[in-house]
Write a protein that binds this DNA or RNA. Structure first.
Length: 273
DNA sequence: AATGGAAACAACCGCAGATGG
DNA sequence: CCCATCTGCGGTTGTTTCCAT
């Protein structure tokens, strides 16, 4: 797992992207598709590193990206998602079509975070660091954010039985048939532990989805397991948000083949309060 | 009109998981 | 199994814009 020394390369442009650079990148990707980010600068003739190209495309240039004017509904959702998930920006962004993790993160840091501080009714959850430094290392932690470990090493020692050892793509495939419209290029790991309140899940996901998910959790809790809701495509990845005709996909379970989830339905105990 | 601080936004950077040779 | 590389996430920093004085 070596580091990618992308930004240390000399001779590359840094800072704000110019209109010309944007045009070059957009036309190149539209002609050749995404991927091979490291090669794109060379092939497209950009003096940028691949990482920078990827970021520029995914967060700003890609068709379907909405900019600015975050609505009240979106703001409410961000707040509730953050209450539940912490700083899982990509996951939160997955529930907001057209929004990027970076935009939501900035929005939170500059506006909502301050509001939250000002109106503290209960201690906010600690941030969920991707570096595994959070206190949420255990899925059974008792800090009010039970079962939401970071994606760091500790988190990944919590392995769900059906999906253990699978890649991101194949993890998703485990719950989605090959014919599914769901995009497989997602990385929306969402860890919910056995103590995550069903009410919180219902509030955000809606009753049916939450019930399904919570049932899955419970099923595995009985076996001392944890759940990775990636298998449900929780937080439909930005890449898979739109149909080719530009229409928005159903974000949630409607695109799933429910038959593939039947192993979850061996009980109907879980309904939202 | 000038200026300094705050807010907002864009981009950089480091880390870590996934993957393939 | 090991290692190099690719990809993605999230924290942080730099820059620009806005606004009050």
């Amino acid at each position: 797992m070596g580091r990618n020394p992308c930004f240390s390369n000399d001779g590359l442009n840094k800072g704000a992207w110019t209109t010309m650079e944007d045009k070059i990148l957009s036309s190149y990707i539209q002609a050749h598709g995404e991927g091979k980010w490291r090669d794109i600068p060379k092939l497209a003739g950009l003096k940028r590193c691949g990482k920078s190209c990827r970021m520029r495309w995914l967060k700003y240039l890609k068709p379907g990206i909405k900019r600015g004017n975050i609505s009240q509904d979106e703001e409410d959702l961000i707040v509730r998602m953050h209450d539940l998930l912490g700083n899982k920006w990509s996951l939160i962004a997955g529930r907001l079509p057209g929004r990027t993790d970076n935009e939501i993160k900035n929005y939170w840091n500059t506006r909502l975070g301050k509001k939250a501080k000002q109106s503290v009714h209960s201690p906010p959850p600690p941030p969920l660091s991707s570096k595994g430094k959070s206190a949420l290392g255990s899925p059974l932690s008792t800090n009010g954010y039970q079962g939401l470990p970071s994606s760091g090493p500790a988190a990944n020692k919590v392995v769900q039985p059906q999906l253990a050892g699978r890649t991101r793509e194949t993890k998703l495939d485990a719950a989605t048939p090959a014919t599914s419209n769901l995009d497989t290029d997602v990385n929306r790991d969402f860890w919910v532990g056995p103590s995550t309140p069903i009410g919180s899940i219902c509030e955000i996901l809606g009753d049916s989805e939450a019930s399904t998910i919570h049932h899955g959790i419970t099923h595995d809790v009985q076996q001392n397991q944890s759940w990775d809701l990636d298998a449900f495509n929780f937080g439909n990845g930005a890449d898979g948000r739109f149909h080719e005709d530009g229409g928005e996909k159903g974000n949630y379970l409607e695109d799933l083949d429910i038959d593939s989830l039947t192993f979850l339905f061996d009980s109907d105990l879980w309904t939202c309060p």
